[in-house]
Amino acid sequence: MNRWAERLWSLLFLMVPVAGVGVFIWAMADGYGMRGHWLPENIDEQGKVIDSLFLFILGLTGVIFVGTGVALFWFLWRYGAAGNRDARVRYTHGSHTLEVVWSILPAATLLFIAIYQMDAWADAKIRRPTIVVNGQEQPKPPIAEITGRQFEWRIRYAGRDGVIGTRDDLFTVNELHLPVHEEIVLVIKTEDVLHSFFLPNLRVKQDVVPGMKQYVWFKPIRTGQYDIVCAELCGWGHYKMRGRLVLQTREEFDRWFEQEWNNQELRSYTPPEPEE
């Protein structure tokens, strides 16, 4: 290869980190053609913790990505055969120090991330919100039960008595209304296959496994309409397994609930035994 071809190729390789970083910045800036490709609007009180973890890991991998890309470019640019015809070659049989360093650094980094994220994980998956009943702290009961099935989300509100499976339950399909500024607990399960209950704007995603019950919790801080999505392939209709999340003030929510409840036809309905 002549000197010019070498230069051209090294610049081409330099384009990898440049374009890579560029695409991310373009997406973050909501640039033309990339609209809506960056993180969806966060409306959860804890969502920023998840987002900052994501950004932290993105930054870390980004630095390594750019570093290796630029190093590759520099070696191509500086040490190509055409420009170094008379240079003497240096042979190496490897360096134990280097190998130890580049083994320990990534291991330590991974360990750091594993420890650093523990609190966020516990908040999202382990420390369910509690309430105090008769001086005793206990897990907050779910406001509704969500049952995934091919290809819809069936929703069953606990109703005024706060217990799911009683006569004052309210049933809806694919439409989940919730009050804002409150700790929401949902119990989710599936009737058939694996699904994944995904609320992108609340940074909540939980697989629902046949035969198991899972709990998710979050605290929305903004009213409006958002998506409910299925995030696990569940058959041919997976693509259309969507629902609508409507976040309202407490008063609006109560009014909606009352209205739906009054519209619900229950005369011929006998509720099954309460499950909990």
């Binding site: 091919q150 058939d192 296959v193 694996l194 046949p210 696990e232 392939l233 569940c234 058959g235 041919w236």
Partner: peptide
């Protein structure tokens, strides 16, 4: 087959789950 390359049950294991 139509249950994804990971072949997760019960989509993959129950013939009635994926008519396809």
């Amino acid at each position: 087959a139509g249950a994804g390359w990971t072949s997760y049950p019960t989509l993959a294991s129950n013939p009635a789950a994926a008519p396809a």
